[in-house]
Computed example of a mutant assay.
Amino acid sequence: MDDVVGQLLDVMERIRRAHDFSGKGLGLAVPQIGIGRSAAVVQPPGSAPLVLLNPRFTDAAEAMDERFEGCLSFFDVRAQVPRPLRITVETMTAAGSTEKAIRERGDARIIGHKIDHLRAVP
């Protein structure tokens, strides 16, 4: 899986050189680059990249926020998308154990978007 994550980080760096995502964050799921695995990397604004291996929601707040979202798969398309303001996401580590983390607001939005890609939601 390290190979796949390395490929994601390489593609994200090339994308970052072509376009400034500093205020919005950036993420990429492996299906977006033609790899049939359940992995994604997200880079919230001002944070280190988060690697998501086999991620899934285990909880979501009822409170929602609706904002415009874009997608690298459809670069010029934007749409209003409702998302929970807080999620709990469970992921695998590279060592094979599981971790849970609570993510809020923008981080919850970008992670939710990537998990949608992994669940084949456009």
Results as ranks from 00 to 15, higher is better:
residue 18 A to Q: 15
residue 63 A to C: 05
residue 46 G to S: 12
residue 96 G to D: 12
residue 111 I to D: 00
residue 40 A to W: 05
residue 98 T to S: 10
residue 33 I to M: 09
residue 116 D to E: 02
residue 54 N to Y: 11
residue 60 A to F: 05
residue 66 E to M: 09
residue 70 G to T: 06
residue 53 L to E: 08
residue 43 Q to P: 01
residue 36 G to K: 10
residue 21 F to T: 08
residue 109 R to E: 02
residue 51 V to F: 12
residue 26 L to W: 08
residue 74 F to S: 08
residue 100 K to Y: 01
residue 122 P to N: 07
residue 84 P to V: 01
residue 106 G to L: 14
residue 8 L to S: 07
residue 121 V to D: 02
residue 122 P to Y: 05
residue 28 L to M: 12
residue 5 V to Q: 13
residue 108 A to K: 00
residue 39 A to K: 07
residue 39 A to L: 10
residue 56 R to V: 01
residue 44 P to T: 02
residue 60 A to M: 14
residue 69 E to M: 05
residue 122 P to W: 04
residue 93 T to P: 06
residue 22 S to V: 06
residue 120 A to H: 08
residue 113 H to E: 03
residue 79 A to D: 15
residue 87 I to W: 03
residue 26 L to D: 10
residue 74 F to Q: 11
residue 3 D to F: 12
residue 10 D to Q: 13
residue 14 R to T: 15
residue 18 A to C: 10
residue 118 L to E: 02
residue 33 I to L: 09
residue 67 R to V: 11
residue 88 T to P: 05
residue 8 L to V: 07
residue 97 S to A: 11
residue 77 V to E: 15
residue 64 M to R: 14
residue 10 D to R: 13
residue 30 V to L: 14
residue 110 I to V: 07
residue 44 P to R: 03
residue 101 A to T: 06
residue 108 A to E: 00
residue 114 K to L: 11
residue 32 Q to R: 10
residue 33 I to S: 08
residue 121 V to I: 11
residue 63 A to Y: 03
residue 91 T to S: 12
residue 104 E to Q: 09
residue 122 P to F: 03
residue 51 V to L: 15
residue 7 Q to D: 13
residue 49 P to K: 06
residue 18 A to P: 11
residue 68 F to A: 09
residue 113 H to G: 03
residue 57 F to T: 07
residue 70 G to P: 08
residue 25 G to I: 03
residue 97 S to Y: 04
residue 2 D to R: 13
residue 30 V to D: 13
residue 106 G to E: 11
residue 97 S to V: 07
residue 78 R to E: 15
residue 71 C to W: 00
residue 12 M to I: 10
residue 34 G to Q: 06
residue 42 V to R: 00
residue 25 G to D: 07
residue 60 A to R: 13
residue 71 C to M: 02
residue 81 V to F: 06
residue 25 G to A: 03
residue 103 R to M: 08
residue 118 L to N: 02
residue 86 R to F: 00
residue 116 D to C: 00
residue 60 A to C: 10
residue 8 L to K: 04
residue 110 I to P: 00
residue 49 P to I: 09
residue 43 Q to F: 02
residue 109 R to F: 05
residue 100 K to T: 10
residue 52 L to D: 01
residue 7 Q to I: 11
residue 45 P to N: 08
residue 98 T to Y: 06
residue 23 G to Q: 12
residue 86 R to Q: 12
residue 69 E to W: 03
residue 61 A to S: 15
residue 80 Q to T: 08
residue 29 A to S: 13
residue 27 G to M: 03
residue 68 F to G: 05
residue 86 R to M: 05
residue 89 V to F: 04
residue 18 A to K: 15
residue 95 A to Y: 09
residue 98 T to H: 08
residue 35 I to F: 03
residue 23 G to S: 12
residue 53 L to R: 08
residue 29 A to I: 04
residue 93 T to H: 06
residue 75 F to P: 07
residue 30 V to A: 15
residue 117 H to S: 04
residue 54 N to F: 13
